[in-house]
Design a protein around this nucleic acid. Sequence first.
DNA 1: CAGTTATATAACTTGATGGATATCTAATGG
DNA 2: CCATTAGATATCCATCAAGTTATATAACTG
Lengths: 100, 100
Amino acid sequence: MDLFEAVAEPNRRRILDLLRERERPAGELVEALSISQPGVSKHLRLLRETGLVGVRVEGARRLYRLEPAALADLEAWLAPYRRFWGERLAALERHLETEQ
Amino acid sequence: MDLFEAVAEPNRRRILDLLRERERPAGELVEALSISQPGVSKHLRLLRETGLVGVRVEGARRLYRLEPAALADLEAWLAPYRRFWGERLAALERHLETEQ
DNA sequence: CAGTTATATAACTTGATGGATATCTAATGG
DNA sequence: CCATTAGATATCCATCAAGTTATATAACTG
């Protein structure tokens, strides 16, 4: 599973969003996600494998944290498009100004 | 199919990348993609349905163009993470400076 | 008009994905 | 220790996505 597919799944995006705030134990993510505990565990494994999250064992709990560097490839792919729609927006703005 | 899934597929990303340069007829995309013509046609339909590309009929050909505004939701999702890994990089830089 | 070219649609196959339940492991608390 | 809690792994199932071949549609071309 590559980065793009990892991020395509809504529950996984939700997990990442939650971890953006702070490190969380798996159980907390289970509560947040309305799918089964093994389901969440599976998503967490995938996220680990793609490098998007890291884990830290603390007693019986596993604390998951965001590993945002793994999003670099997505960012890199998107970057050239950003410029693109920036141009569009700029054009629209110019148009609106002219209209006034 | 939502935006994230649309972009998760490598052939579709390739199509978008090609259309970033310029408008192209479907056939040109078929040549570039090493999958069958109907395969490409199917991807183009999905990309149309998610608003990522637009078409223009010119005689027997369909000219596809990029519709970059449709990437806004992806951009919006990614944005808060960008700040995040900026912080990390900054922290690393500070660390390296301290080490020296 | 007949044949060819460009593209879309239909039907089908296959593999991967996401979910569930059941079970295993390891740590905690009494 | 034993029961409980936290989480991972195993297995199974249904769905879906992506590819293929075959066929339909429509526009050019001689």
